[in-house]
Design a protein around this nucleic acid. Structure first.
Lengths: 187, 187
DNA sequence: GTCTATAGTTGGATAGAC
DNA sequence: GTCTATCCAACTATAGAC
């Protein structure tokens, strides 16, 4: 792993615990057993760390979404794929995902605009899949806004739940979450 | 409204938007059309603002929970009451609730310990109600942890959803959320 | 109760030696 | 690539005049 990747990984851990604004470059350097000045040989500044962490994850989601959109499946199966997408990213990139969810508003300039754009597009795509499911009679006829809100709230919180749980509890989650989220939607 | 309450209200708005660490006493003073030094005639410091905002809301939740525990109702009705508790607090104290959910880790000393204690107790009580519902055969037999996680994730996110919505969409939420969250739990 | 002035600390970032 | 030393801006909070 390159030095830059080590810095990004360590920063993700610290930002997750204390939040972007509360972590100093000196804190980050200390956690890496170096001095703050040395960090700048690998990254241009604190903002670069934040934007790399967040935009990488954001692109994981939009990449996953475009795969799901291309599936030749009904809305129900697509919703299942999206649940798995969220679980898999939460498992493989827990810290960076936490940073994205809690510190995106500290992005500045272009990266901020980019993130907001990606997030809006993701929500639009998610909503379209749910709407299609309702039109086709796969899902109950209720407010799409309410369904979208409830599903996304749960999916976006998985990262909070995962680090506290055993592998067997995570297996339960993978098994039961599609049921729990989609059962209430069936006609 | 006393000057202190005005300060707390304004602080809640700013903390919600930018996070506790990113808001300075100068920012807060400017938003109140005064100088930073003048704030200290009303509050002892930045930490006091944070702890008052957060612990007030935390006590709203524990107070609500103790009412629900005393209800002479089945688990299903109690769960419904808890959903309403979350919706009502999210409606009446949107900003302070946002601060509690995102900035509690910036509490220091006693208030931090107090908040963590209240939150743990709330989750224990919530879990006990769900477990009781499963034992009595009101709810499906699935992992309580998964149900608790999914319900609390949605309920704790309501404050994010509310400011973007019209009164009629909020009515939909009030009407449909109990259904959506509890339907998947029925046997 | 609000102000100006400022103390005392800490932040991100750079310069230049090794 | 890491260090020491340092710049300078910004932070919380206090002192004391009005």
């Amino acid at each position: 792993m390159t030095r830059k990747k080590q810095i990004l990984k360590t920063a993700a851990q610290l930002f997750k615990e204390r939040g972007y604004s509360a972590v100093t470059m000196r804190d980050l350097a200390a956690a890496m057993d170096m001095k703050a000045a040395s960090l700048y040989n690998h990254i241009s500044g604190k903002q670069e760390i934040l934007s790399v962490l967040i935009l990488d994850i954001a692109h994981e989601f939009t990449g996953g979404m475009s795969m799901v959109k291309d599936e030749d499946n009904a809305a129900f199966a697509k919703a299942e794929s999206l649940i798995n997408l969220h679980i898999n990213i939460a498992l493989s990139h827990t810290d960076a995902l936490a940073v994205m969810n809690t510190d995106w508003m500290h992005l500045e300039g272009r990266p901020y605009e980019e993130y907001v754009k990606l997030r809006k597009q993701y929500e639009r795509d998610f909503k379209a899949i749910l709407e299609h499911g309702i039109q086709q009679g796969e899902f109950k006829s209720m407010s799409v806004e309410t369904i979208l809100f409830s599903m996304l709230s749960t999916l976006r919180s998985i990262y909070l739940w995962i680090p506290r749980k055993s592998p067997s509890e995570i297996k339960s989650l993978k098994l039961e979450l599609p049921d729990l989220l989609l059962e209430g939607l069936k006609c």
